[in-house]
Amino acid sequence: MKKSNDHGKPETGHESTNGSGQKYGMVIDLDKCTGCGTCMVACAAENNVSVRADQSDKERVITWMRLYKISNGKKFPHTEVSYFPRPCMHCDHHPPCVSVCVATATKLDFNTGIVSQIYTRCIGCRYCQAACPYGARYFNWWDSFPQDKGMDRYLTPEVSPRMRGVVEKCTFCHHRLMRAKNQAYAEDRRELEEGEYITACTEACPAQAITFGDLNKPDHKVSQLIKHPYAFRLLDRLGTEPKVYYLSSRDWVRKLADNFLPGEYEPVVNRTWAEDEWSTKPGRDEF
């Protein structure tokens, strides 16, 4: 696809990643996810995300990667809890946040598939925040790095700390792509190997639930995993083409990923291991 303007946008106006570049995507296996929250902490530490004394106001606390808790709602002792780790979906088709940005502070990069966010360009109108169906965007209500506490000492120079009044969100740890490229250049290469560029959450997940890679490369693990029968996306039917996929063998989890009408959802797995195992219950009389 020919690119014409200086923002690398293809001429056709079809706003989505082209086939020639990279298309970075993520697969999160919810069966493996333990809900520990390491991804959230790794993300915050990696990206200089601000911390305030009160982190319980979930509408204002900044969590690029956020864990949502869901439950099957069944009565005790059949209750199950599961978690949706939710980074920015990096929508591949007309990202809703991009089209509404009046300041061109956020763009979909067609060569990486990453939706960018430039803080110094953001005017803080929060239109993108309203437009994002995934709640992935956060507004800086405060300047949040008190320098007299010494907490600015762990800030990394790879990610610019944000000021009050701008919106921020997950960048797929874009600086890690830059880091990996620099490393490759130092070794006289242009191409990155699979796994050379992964996000902080991917690296941190102690259960290896997160897989990251190039969806344009069929041999990358992500490309294979998204073909898995358990694979699904959040609010898939909006047509935003998220590049973050989920895997779950639990139907109740999969069902909560979208707004289904009664009877509309088709289960993938009918019986769990325990149901199979427990199906031939011997009577208590035996003992």
Partner: peptide
């Protein structure tokens, strides 16, 4: 490769 969230936040 993995650690827990407390370990991850250790610099604080």
């Amino acid at each position: 490769g993995g650690i827990c969230p407390v370990g991850m936040g250790g610099l604080q």
